[in-house]
Structures are given as C-alpha cells and as structure tokens.
Nucleic acid binder design. Structure first.
Lengths: 197, 197
DNA sequence: CTTTAAAGCAACTTTGCGTTGCATGCAACG
DNA sequence: CGTTGCATGCAACGCAAAGTTGCTTTAAAG
C-alpha cells in the first residue's frame, strides 16, 4: 500500500510543520472554548495556516478533532514505582490531580467525555482510558506480588476508587483537592480493601 | 422595586406558559445536542414559540442557558433515611448512578462542568452542588448521631469518596457501574473510615 | 369593554461556514 | 542544479443560519 509506484509524496518539512501546528492549535482552541463552538477558522488563525489547508487535509471538523485528540491523549505518563502501594498510589493520585486541575487538560477531559456520543469520536475515550489503566495496572500487580493486597484484587476497580473522588471533586463541585485529601483517598481505599470480606 | 406604581405587569397565563415551554425545550435541546450547537431557532421550534420571543425575553443564548439550567438543576431529590448509613448511602449511590447514566442528565452534567469557564454561567455549578451536598449531609449527620461514624467525620468528604468512583467510571471510561460495584464503593469507604486513625 | 404588555409574523441584514479557481512555494526526483 | 507536481496560500463566492426590526395580533389586567 505504501511502497508501490508512488507518485511523489510530500511528506517533508512544511507539511509536517503544518500538521503539528494545526494539532497544537486544535488542542489549544479545544482547551479555550471546549468542544463546542470551536471553528475551523479560529484554529487556522491560531496555527498561522490558511483555512483551506485544514478543509482540504481533514475535511470535516470531526475528523480533525479525532486526529488532534488522538495525538493529544497519547502522551504516556511515568508510573511511579516506589516500593509500596501506598506511596505508589499517592504519587499517581497527585499526578492525576495535577493533570486534571490544569485548565487545558480539564477541557480535554470534558471533550473526551462529550465525545462518547459522537459517531466519529466515540472510540477515542475508550482507547485513551484503556491505555491509562493498562499503564497504571502494574502498581496493583506489584502490590499483590508483594503481598500488600489480596490476590484477587481487581486493578481497575482499585484505581477507579482511588482516582474517582479526585475527578469528581474537580469536575463536579469544582474544588481543588489538596494533598491531605489526595492521601486520604488512597488510605481509605487501601484500609477498606484490606478489611473487606 | 417591585411594588411601585407598576405599569400593568403581564405575569399571567400565556407568559408563564411560554417561559416554561422554553425552559423545557432548552433542556431538551441541551440533552440532545449538548451545550454545543444548540440554536435559538431549534429551541423555539421545540417550544412551539416564535424565535423573536426568545430573543426579546432572554437576549443572549447564555442568559437563556443560565436561566434554564438554573431551573433544571433545582429539582430536589429524595434523600433516603433507612436507619443505617450503609443502606442510606447505598440507596443514594444508586440514585446518583441512575441519574448520571440517563443521557439527558449526563449531558446536563457535562454542561454544568463546562459552564465553570463561562462568565455568565460560572455560578451555576457551585450553586447546584451546594444544594446537593446540603441535601445529602443529613445522612452522615444521622449516622454520627447514631454512633455509626466517628464524630469528626466530614459529610462532604465522605460523600465525595462514595460518589466519586461512580462519576468517574461513567464520565471517564464510560462504564456503567453495576449494583455490586456501587455497593462496594459504599462498603470500602465505610470500612476504611471506621479503621482510619 | 378598554388598555397595553407580550407573543406572533414576515422580511431584512449580518455573520460565518464551507467551497472553488487560481497563483505561489517547496519537497522530491533526475 | 533544474524540473516536476503536490501542498499551501489567497481571494472571492454561495449559502444557511443567526440575529434584528416594524408591524400585527392575542390575551392578561383593570
């Protein structure tokens, strides 16, 4: 498909630069105005690119969104490995809190949540979250191996229980969880699990 | 301001009916299309009202949104009082889950989260959540009075910890929490708190 | 019944999206 | 180093929806 009798491709410098600029601009616009009311013309202006370029390369607004979100949410994060579940989860939880507190990421997350309905964008959320959970899972697996957690513990459930309250307090009431609250979320869940039938 | 030498007001029947119809239509449109791309004309059509009426009464789309959301999120819910924290919280948590699973409310919640940025709408979220927490607080207070929870327990924190995971799993990964998961969220937190230093 | 605020109606202006045709620039290849 | 042609820039257009305005009609308040 790729290496056939290719008519000259135009993969180099300028095109790549344009693509990247548009991606950045799209995510920036998304962060500012949310998934709603973000216009191609606005993105083009931010990217310093002509709107026809965007229309020709991506066609629809949704395709652009899918592309940009796909790129913007692929960034991997460093999963802590400190030697104990408690501090691993505490570190992870603080990362999560800091991430969702940043307005940019906050709006990206809202956009992801909104995308669940869209035809074209529906796949983005699941894929993103699958990646995040897969990355975080080792924390729990290591803990089980160490004997810190009961063998049957489901990693995803545990992570949801730890991270959920942080999410909720940011996206619902809009409160910024302080360190004490974050640690408390970790402790309560760990204690609860260890004493659970 | 209100009761002065009022030139005849027109508070009665028709106006009220129009207001209510528009409110309903706005929330319906919001549920369908999200905060994005909801047009005054669409709302007018849904409400069976002329668009000029909406433009004249509310002026901007944001003012209408603020008004409708303010009304739509004021609905009080029944707070369970079963005699034990565990079942109270379980009932509350299921209510919450069912609420956020319904597409209509789901989009309303997303709209509320999005509104945090807007100039005009910023106050809606906090007001809504203040109401919800105030309503739910008695569950915890009664539990403390019964000796089921330690005296210092902060109601809001507890509720956030119970409800957060449900929110997260719906709005993040997009999974519908089953009853077992809901109950587990309640149990883990209660056990965790009772064994917490 | 009279008065008049509020809703309906129809036409208009404006705005902004998406499109098209053509000129220009730059990477790919000889 | 020069040629080729794909990708971008530019400017103007068509069109649909947003929002506005002047006037008429309806119905609540007295």
């Amino acid at each position: 498909m790729e290496g056939s009798s290719s008519p000259r491709r135009r993969t180099g410098g300028r095109s790549a630069r344009v693509t990247q600029a548009v991606h950045r601009a799209t995510l920036a616009a998304l962060a500012d105005k949310g998934l709603a009311g973000l216009s191609i013309e606005d993105i083009a202006a931010r990217a310093g690119v002509n709107k026809t370029t965007i229309y020709r390369r991506w066609g629809t607004r949704e395709a652009l969104m899918a592309d940009a979100l796909g790129v913007g949410t692929t960034r991997q994060i460093a999963i802590p490995d400190t030697g104990s579940v408690r501090s691993d989860l505490a570190a992870l939880a603080r990362q999560v809190r800091d991430t969702i507190l940043a307005p940019t990421n906050r709006n990206l997350m809202v956009a992801l949540a909104t995308s669940a309905g869209h035809e074209t964008l529906a796949g983005l959320g699941p894929r993103y979250w699958a990646g995040r959970f897969a990355a975080s899972r080792p924390i729990v697996e290591r803990a089980i191996a160490r004997g810190e957690l009961p063998p049957g513990t489901d990693p995803d459930t545990l992570i949801i229980q730890v991270v959920g309250p942080l999410w909720f307090s940011v996206f619902g009431p809009g409160r910024a969880p302080d360190d004490a609250f974050v640690d408390r979320c970790v402790d309560i869940v760990l204690i609860g699990i260890s004493h659970h039938a």
